[in-house]
Amino acid sequence: MRNADHAALFRSLHAQGLLRLANAWDAGSARLIESLGAPAIATTSAGVAWSRGYADGDQLPIEHLLTATAEIARVIRVPLSVDVEGGYSDDPDVVAGNVLRLAELGVVGINLEDGAGAPAALCAKITRIKQTLAARGLDVYVNARTDVYLRGLAPAERRVHAVLGRAAQYRDAGADGLFVPGLVESGAIRDIAAGAGLPLNVMLRPSLPGLAELEALGVRRLSAGSDLAEAVFAHVGQLAGSFLQDGRAAAAPRMAYGEINALFGAR
């Protein structure tokens, strides 16, 4: 079974070393990233939303997410994890149903965030997701994202404590991993990695320690987040602006037409 095989592989990627996920936003970006040797593909909710013409922040209709996910799953052969933001509903049953539909498409991991909400709300969603999937014999790695750092939900000196408190609740609810975007300071990373009881995921930031140090601090997963999608928007904006101004495209690195086309040939 593809779900079982991919689910086991995806879990094993968090067991040791540092899993690097260069987040994709559509089938083309996912296939390109896979071709570069990525052991798994994860999506960025922002990039997926933008690619479908919506703002990030639970604005994307679930049907669009399901369509984008099916398109990605069709072209890759490695495990797929999908960022589902807050689950696109406040109702745990609806969220669980959304995740079940993703799992039936072959998804073996999700990111599910607390945002500005109470931890109990995310706990209820995680518990219901796990119950629903277990009843169908499906396994999905639930990466619980807490926005304590990203949104400044606690004073700086209390953030480690706040994250660990939420991590304990999310772990008890059934979460498999902990994602703390905005966390960059070495001491805080070490303390959270040691105390969370879950594999720690951090997000790429200029001030983040290097790969070797992150691994030594106990981090098991590093996500690019929306960074690649943002860079692509900037790059296309520069090229299109130049073309519209003088009929020429600005000098920039390019992949050849045939090289890109070959990514989507028979495999």
Rank of each mutant, 00 (worst) to 15 (best):
R2M: 14
N3G: 06
N3A: 09
R11W: 15
S12A: 14
Q16T: 11
L19Y: 01
R20V: 12
S29P: 03
R31I: 05
L36R: 10
A40E: 01
G53D: 05
G53Y: 07
A55E: 13
D58K: 13
Q59M: 13
I62L: 11
H64L: 13
E71Q: 09
R74G: 09
R77L: 15
V78W: 03
V78G: 02
Y88Q: 05
S89C: 11
D91H: 10
P92A: 09
D93L: 15
D93E: 13
L100G: 02
L100Y: 11
L102C: 03
A103H: 02
L105W: 15
L112K: 02
E113L: 04
T127G: 14
K130F: 09
T132I: 13
L133T: 02
L133G: 01
G137F: 13
Y141I: 13
A144V: 04
R145Q: 04
T146W: 00
T146I: 05
D147H: 09
L150M: 12
G152A: 08
L153G: 04
A154G: 03
R158K: 15
G174Y: 01
V180G: 00
P181Y: 00
G187L: 12
I189P: 00
D191M: 12
A196Y: 05
N201D: 04
M203E: 04
L204W: 08
R205F: 14
P206T: 08
P209D: 11
E213L: 12
E213Q: 09
E213I: 14
L217G: 00
V219N: 00
R220V: 08
R221N: 06
S226P: 09
A229L: 11
A229T: 08
E230P: 14
F233M: 14
F233G: 11
H235Q: 15
Q238G: 15
A240C: 15
A240K: 15
L244D: 12
G247P: 05
A256D: 12
F264L: 06
F264V: 03
F264K: 01
G265N: 03
R267Y: 07
